[in-house]
Amino acid sequence: MLMHVINVGHDVFKANDKIADKNRKNLDRHGVLAVNIMGAIGSGKTTLIEEAIKALKDKYRIAVIAGDVIAEMDASRFRKLDVPTVPANTGKECHLDAKLVEKALKEINLKNTDLLIIENVGNLICPVDFKLGEHLRIVAVSVTEGDDIILKHPMIFKTAELAVINKVDLAAAVDVDPEKMVSDIQALNPEVPILLTSKHSRESLDVWVGAIEAGLESR
C-alpha cells in the first residue's frame, strides 16, 4: 500500500468560464450582443423581454434563449412575437450554464442576429456563479419581493451591469419604498445603472428599451 498526494488544481467554475469565453467569441464573431436577464421568480423578466422585443424587432434582428426548468411556456410567449426562440430546459437545475447556452447557440442563426436575449431561470442565487458568455448582465427584481430582497442576495447586485426594479406601481400596495431598494443597490454597486419600471408606464418601458438599444449601438 502506498499513499500519494495528487495535485489536481481543477476549478469547477473555470471549466464553465472557458465554455462561456467560447460562447462570447462565437457571438463576437457574428457581431451579436448577448444580454443575460437574471432575476427573481415573478419579477417580470418575461414581460420586460416582450416589451424589448416589441420595441426593437423592426430595427434589429432578435433571437431569444428561454431558460427555465420547463422552458416551453415562456418560449411560446416569445414565438408569438415572431422571433426565433430556443427553449433551454434546465431540468432539475436552478440556473443556465455556459454548456446549455453553447448547445442553444447551435440552433440560432447568429449570422442573422443582432441581439440575443437570454432569459435565465428565476433565481437570484445560482445564476451568479455561472457566466454564459453574455455582454451585459441584467438583474430584475420587483417591489413585490419585499424591500430587503437586495440585501438578501448581494452578489447578484454586486456583479450586475444593469439593475431593474420592476412593478413600482405596486409599491404602495405592498408597503415597499423603491428608493430603499435603489440605495441598497447603490451601496453594493455604486456604478450600476438602476431603472424603475412598470408595465403600465410607457415612459419607464421606453427607458428600459433604451438601455438595451444603447448596448446594441455601442457594439
Binding site: 502506498l2 498526494v5 489536481v8 476549478d11 467554475f13
Partner: peptide, 14 residues
C-alpha cells in the same frame, strides 16, 4: 469566486 479541487490523497496497491 472559485471552487478548486486542490489535491486528492490516494492509495495504490504497489
Amino acid at each position: 469566486q472559485e471552487l478548486i479541487i486542490k489535491t486528492i490523497d490516494i492509495e495504490t496497491e504497489d
